[in-house]
Amino acid sequence: MHRQTFRYAFIDSLPVMAGYVVLGMGFGILLQDKGYSWLWALLMSLTIYAGSMQYVAVDLLSGGATMLAAFLMTIMVNVRHLFYGISMLEKYNRAGKTRPYLIFALTDETYSLVCSKQEREDMDINLYYFFVSILNQSYWITGSVVGALLGSAFHFNSAGLDFAMTALFVVIFTEQWEKEKNHLPALVGVGVSVICLLIFGASGFLIPSMIGIVILLFLLKKRMPEQENV
């Protein structure tokens, strides 16, 4: 059963592998360009382990940011992780010994895999969460270290390869759309985000979107799925 659980986790994580190796390499290349060796890439991918934040970190390090700026910037970029935690509360609180690592490693992509995974008879769901989490981090670490080692010597036209990540989210969106007859939560997510993107622009729309989504989800609570259980 452990082997079967690993198989499910590995297969589900393949698109993340594509995305993380490419994005991780991009990070590693940028970082070594600023004079930081692969050891720094390894350290950051082990301890920070947040994709978009590590790109921002390259700017903060090379620009000699203040500690306060680094703190505030991290909150701005990563505040969305609060939401992942809220929706994984019940599942991860039952996970046992691996719980601290699962919470630490809850990135966008890991969240997208674990949040919609249905339990099956031939698998251990808690072990599945752990395998997915650790596989994803290993892809990210591998990508960032390889990127820092190869640096600018790497010549492969990878333009557009990071679309794998977009495609992953689109696939999950499609699966959720088919699974749940009530499309209101999905429509709220897309609708509020698009409106906020138009109003606030690409660099500042995430936080207004999250606030808007939460408000609207509460306002529309009566029209939401499974409301008899609430």
Partner: peptide, 30 residues
């Protein structure tokens, strides 16, 4: 979230936890 809602998670947060995945994946696509 795990520190704040360690015991007795409020119903409103559980509700949010159930509908948020659909909304957030939509947001991530955008």
């Amino acid at each position: 979230p795990f520190l704040i809602f360690r015991h007795n998670t409020p119903q409103s947060i559980l509700y949010l936890g159930r509908v948020l995945p659909y909304a957030i994946i939509g947001m991530l696509v955008v």
